[in-house]
Design a protein around this nucleic acid. Structure first.
Length: 202
DNA sequence: AACACGATCTACT
DNA sequence: GTAGATCGTGTTG
């Protein structure tokens, strides 16, 4: 992994769909207190503006979604379903609420630490799904608003050749399913929507 | 103050 | 395949 480059604010301060697509294949890194945990992003979803009915900003500014209205390059992490957290990266200029939800990644560094946090999850699925991803990386809503351009929590480009990306409707939502705003590395096994239908053994 | 529900995951029938 | 866990948030009274 030579020449890993930490993504700068200018990367995040662009159209959300562009940022979302380019995030696939990047590495999400959590460097808490000496330990380093990371994964290769393989699945993301874009949530764009108050006009997107599935976006948390759809009701307008509230205390909860305030981070989405802030400057790009910060983490928006929220608590949901009474037990899980979901991690997003804020995009676009201050005042415009948008973010990219990190839905799945392939475990890279610190797998032992992830297993300690998710003892019952099969290794391949440690970061597969937004809830599992936050659990294994140790991310909670308390870290919402953290700057991704600092140390501790950031995303880096390890200079990989571009992955083959597929666009689909977003999952887990009722409204806004007409938009193809989910981006997946089609070659990855960690896809959280793993359709284990007939035929596709593997 | 009370209520309904959600960008989920797991366990069990 | 489906129900249960479990609680912050926004809405309504």
């Amino acid at each position: 992994m030579p020449r890993a480059k930490k993504l700068k604010r200018s990367f995040y301060n662009r159209p959300t769909l562009t940022v979302a697509e380019e995030l696939v294949g990047m590495y999400l890194v959590c460097a808490n207190r000496g330990s380093r945990v990371s994964g290769r992003i393989v699945e993301v979803e874009a949530y764009v503006g108050e006009d997107d009915p599935a976006c948390h900003a759809a009701p307008g500014p509230t205390r909860r979604n305030a981070v989405m209205y802030g400057p790009a390059g910060h983490a928006y992490i929220y608590f949901i379903y009474g037990m899980y957290n979901c991690m997003n990266v804020v995009t676009e200029k201050k005042g415009f609420p948008a973010a990219v939800l990190i839905r799945a990644a392939e475990p890279e560094d610190g797998i032992e630490i992830m297993i300690r946090r998710s003892p019952k999850t099969p290794a391949r699925l440690l970061l597969s799904g937004p809830g599992r991803l936050c659990r294994a990386l140790g991310l909670t809503a308390g870290q919402s608003g953290n700057d991704l351009c600092g140390d501790g929590l950031y995303i880096e480009d390890r200079g990989e050749s571009e992955a083959h990306i597929v666009r689909t409707p977003r999952v887990g939502i009722r409204k806004g399913t007409d938009r193809l705003w989910r981006f997946v590395d089609s070659t990855s096994d960690a896809d959280s929507a793993r359709k284990v239908t007939k035929g596709s053994s593997k």
